[in-house]
């Protein structure tokens, strides 16, 4: 016996030293039979390494895992089958109801389509402006909605709004411009600039005229006519209409992004700030002090934090910010701030 066998195996398993490699080269060039033997050894070692790799694999564990996959698959297939059955059962009544509904609504839909109403909404904390088909311009304050037809009917330019909007109406004596509010009050104008505030949670609908003339109507009946600088207050609950002198600048300056308070009450200030910044203010006034304060402030690009710190300087208030509250149907979150009026 000689070293040849050991050297060949070492080489084929890749564990030979350089000296031994040289020795192997000599052996291989020495004889043909050595080369044949070396080839066989190579075959043996590669088969052996293959066996080694296989023995590292845990077949029993693999089988368990595979059966787990089978179970998941059949579960999925079963759920799928159930779903298919459910779909088949549901499909028929669905088809019937869709058919019935589409027949029933087709006439209604046509009406809506011919009117072609569009809706624009100013996201909380933003101001939107839109030019209407008759080139009248409308600014929408934070959180307000305006609906208008893509083409105005002859004889009446009709829009509907909720929230606060400022209108600059193009003059057109033949076709009056009517702003409808959910309260039933309509402001009719021919060519003017005016502001309408009609928030759902407000007691009043406020129409402030800047220029021209506006009629306030309820159910096609003209109740009163406003002069520039006048504000028509419609009290929703009582169905009453009152005319007051108003600060037009204060009422309309919001379209420039400014919030202006002139002789404003505490409630008014927090109500408007709440709309602008999308904040729910909760006012605690245990000593009934709010009557004593009137505010005269202008805000423009301030953050709510800055606004609050200014207000704190102006009046003895204390406030606490609550967490952001998720709002239903709105992507934006509403913040809650509690305010205490202190002695």
């Amino acid at each position: 016996m000689n070293r040849k066998e050991i050297l060949f195996f070492k080489q084929c398993y890749g564990v030979s030293s350089p000296d031994e490699d040289a020795e192997i080269q000599d052996l291989l060039s020495e004889s043909k039979s050595n080369r044949a033997e070396f080839e066989k050894v190579r075959e043996i070692t590669s088969l052996d390494m293959e066996l080694e790799r296989m023995s590292e694999i845990d077949t029993a564990r693999g089988y368990e895992r595979m059966m787990g996959k089978v179970r998941r698959k059949s579960k999925r297939a079963y759920t799928c089958q159930i779903m298919m059955k459910a779909c088949a059962i549901m499909a028929l009544p669905l088809l019937i109801s869709v058919t019935v509904l589409s027949v029933m609504t087709s006439s209604l839909k046509k009406q809506l389509d011919s009117r072609g109403w569009q809706e624009i909404k100013a996201a909380p904390g933003t101001i939107a402006s839109v030019e209407l088909p008759d080139r009248s311009k409308v600014w929408l304050n934070s959180g307000s909605t305006l609906r208008y037809p893509s083409r105005f009917r002859k004889g009446k330019r009709e829009v509907q709004m909720e929230g606060e909007a400022y209108f600059e109406v193009q003059a057109d004596k033949k076709n009056p411009f009517c702003v409808g509010t959910p309260s039933g009050l309509e402001a009719v104008a021919y060519g003017t600039r005016f502001n309408v505030t009609s928030y759902p949670d407000d007691e009043n609908v406020e129409t402030t005229l800047a220029e021209g003339s506006v009629s306030l109507c309820i159910g096609d009946e003209e109740k009163c006519r406003l002069n520039p600088g006048e504000c028509g207050l419609y009290i929703k609950g009582k169905d009453q209409l009152r005319i007051e002198q108003a600060n037009v600048y204060e009422k309309t300056v919001w379209i420039e992004g400014k919030t202006v308070f002139r002789n404003a009450t505490v409630e008014e200030v927090f109500e408007r700030l709440g709309r602008k910044y999308n904040v729910d203010f909760i006012i605690h006034d245990p000593y009934r002090l709010s009557e004593n304060y009137r505010f005269r402030i202008t805000f423009k690009d301030e953050t709510i934090q800055q606004v609050m710190s200014y207000l704190k300087l102006a009046a003895p208030i204390r406030y606490e910010s609550g967490p952001l509250m998720p709002q239903s149907g709105d992507m934006l979150q509403k913040q809650r701030i509690e305010v205490w009026l202190e002695k």
């Binding site: 195996f9 033997e37 075959e43």
Partner: peptide, 12 residues
């Protein structure tokens, strides 16, 4: 393959 070689290989 081992059978085709001299016995010394199998031994090693």
């Amino acid at each position: 393959a081992l059978d085709s070689l001299p016995d010394s290989y199998r031994m090693v």
